[in-house]
């Protein structure tokens, strides 16, 4: 599946938050959307998930316009939000079943898929625990498992490692990379942490609402004449890497 953003612009009142953002995501690849806090990453995610209404430009999933055919497009997108979006009072399985129902899956099919994802994410033993009892890393894994239940082809993760310790961050990052490689999932991982990005990733650098760079990490470094992504990011944005 190809995902194309074409001339996305967005303003809150008088403040222009995104300006003419255009990019294409390659099918089955891991993409890092890199930008300092306030760059417009969450706004871009809001637009891609229809939580915000498109003002200018459009997004296309396999040629289907998000503006014109939102339901068709949304069927292909899985999302992990920056803030917790799990119901803490419900169990892990109940959260997954709820999400499946929202995508029109029957109870039987939902159970089948939930069990499969819980197994895959090593969460089967916690299936009947209330989410409240899970640590941050496990909750994130539940959120990713949930986002994959309806078999999306594009997975959006908005700063998914916020609030996690270093080990959990690394584990989550490598887990998503594995999914990307094994399932052919297209991933867009928003972050402000350079260490979550690898030179072979496709990197989109967003700064003050403008897409400054879009390409292979190593190629961007070479283009900017910088030794690594951290200095490339710094050179382009004037921001220190976290």
């Amino acid at each position: 599946m190809t995902i194309e953003a074409r001339n996305i612009g967005f303003r809150y009142g008088s403040k222009q938050v995104l300006t003419e953002v255009s990019f294409t995501l390659a099918a089955g690849r891991f993409h890092a959307l890199l930008g300092p806090n306030g760059a417009g990453k969450s706004t871009l995610f809001g637009l891609m998930t229809r939580l915000l209404a498109l003002q200018t430009g459009d997004l296309f999933l396999d040629g289907q316009s998000l503006r014109k055919q939102p339901a068709d497009a949304m069927r292909h997108i899985g999302v992990v939000f920056q803030q917790n979006a799990l119901d803490l009072d419900l169990t892990v399985r109940q959260n997954l079943l709820y999400h499946a129902a929202l995508h029109g899956l029957s109870r039987k099919e939902a159970r089948l898929r939930s069990d499969r994802e819980l197994e895959r994410f090593a969460l089967a033993e916690r299936a009947n625990d209330p989410v409240r009892l899970l640590n941050g890393g496990h909750r994130r894994r539940v959120e990713i498992a949930r986002a994959l239940l309806h078999h999306p082809t594009l997975l959006l993760l908005d700063e998914p490692t916020v609030g996690l310790d270093v080990a959990s961050r690394a584990a989550l990052n490598s887990h998503v990379r594995k999914l990307c490689a094994e399932d052919g999932l297209t991933v867009l991982w928003a972050t402000h942490l350079i260490e979550e990005v690898q030179p072979e990733d496709r990197v989109l650098i967003l700064h003050e609402g403008v897409l400054l760079a879009n390409g292979e990490g190593q190629a961007l470094c070479d283009h900017e004449g910088q030794p690594d992504l951290a200095t490339t990011f710094h050179a382009l944005t004037g921001a220190g890497s976290s």
Binding site: L51, A71, M74, Y98, L102, H103
Partner: peptide, 14 residues
């Protein structure tokens, strides 16, 4: 219900 609403609104249904 904020988290739950985000999930709800991600549904492809109208």
């Amino acid at each position: 219900e904020l988290g739950s609403m985000r999930v709800l609104l991600m549904s492809p249904l109208p």
